[in-house]
């Protein structure tokens, strides 16, 4: 075991200036200072025990999880029959829903188009579109006012071409569409709205 000259101790502790040491001792003192600085900058190494435990611990946890997943276990579900039936009905409904989708773009034929009806009838209880496309039958195309703001709307697939129509408000009041822009005498003293449906090309 080598001993360090007490003057080096004094210089490292700051009791005497480093420059007062003989050259040989000064070099030793500088080397010791550099070594101390290196040790202070290096991160603290993980302990060996910690590293060993970490290596042993992970595979054990993973294998326990795998074992838990693959081991057969009995699952007991207590449920009233009425809830079981409701669950089955729900699953059936979800399975059948795609069959009741509205017509897709592909379902609109080449000789068909889309007609959008919008009309403002505040306070109306019902608004229907009646025309040559539905044999003038009230009720086959009912418009909707979902937010109850008095604006009634409907989107309908119709044969491409020209159609005459009117709105029937509350099942009795016949009104020409104020937004139609095209009208023709109905020969009963009023005017029908004229609708030109263009074939859909998307």
């Amino acid at each position: 075991m080598s001993t360090i000259d007490p003057r080096i101790h004094q210089a490292l502790d700051g009791e005497i200036p480093l420059a007062t040491l003989p050259p040989e001792l000064r070099r030793q003192a500088e080397l010791l200072e550099a070594a101390a600085a290196l040790l202070a900058a290096a991160p603290a190494a993980e302990s060996v025990a910690g590293r060993v435990m970490a290596a042993l611990d992970h595979p054990a946890r993973r294998s326990r999880l795998v074992r838990w997943l693959v081991t057969p276990r009995a699952v007991v579900l207590r449920m009233r029959p009425v809830w079981s039936l409701a669950l089955a009905a729900g699953v059936l409904l979800v399975a059948l829903l795609p069959l009741r989708e509205p017509p897709s773009i592909a379902a609109v034929g080449e000789e068909e188009g889309i007609a959008q009806f919008v009309a403002r009838f505040p306070g109306a209880r019902s608004v229907a579109v009646v025309g040559s496309f539905n044999d003038w039958r009230a009720g086959s195309i009912a418009l909707e006012d979902r937010d109850h703001d008095g604006v009634w709307r409907g989107v309908v697939v119709l044969p491409a071409g020209t159609h005459e129509y009117m709105f029937v408000v509350d099942g009795e009041r016949w009104v020409a569409d104020p937004l139609a822009g095209r009208y023709v005498a109905d020969d009963f003293g009023r005017e029908n709205s004229l609708l030109i449906v263009r074939p859909v090309k998307l």
Binding site: S104, N134, R137
Partner: peptide
């Protein structure tokens, strides 16, 4: 287009 429906009835 997806909202469009065909007239019911006649």
């Amino acid at each position: 287009v997806l909202r469009a429906r065909r007239p019911g009835g006649g």
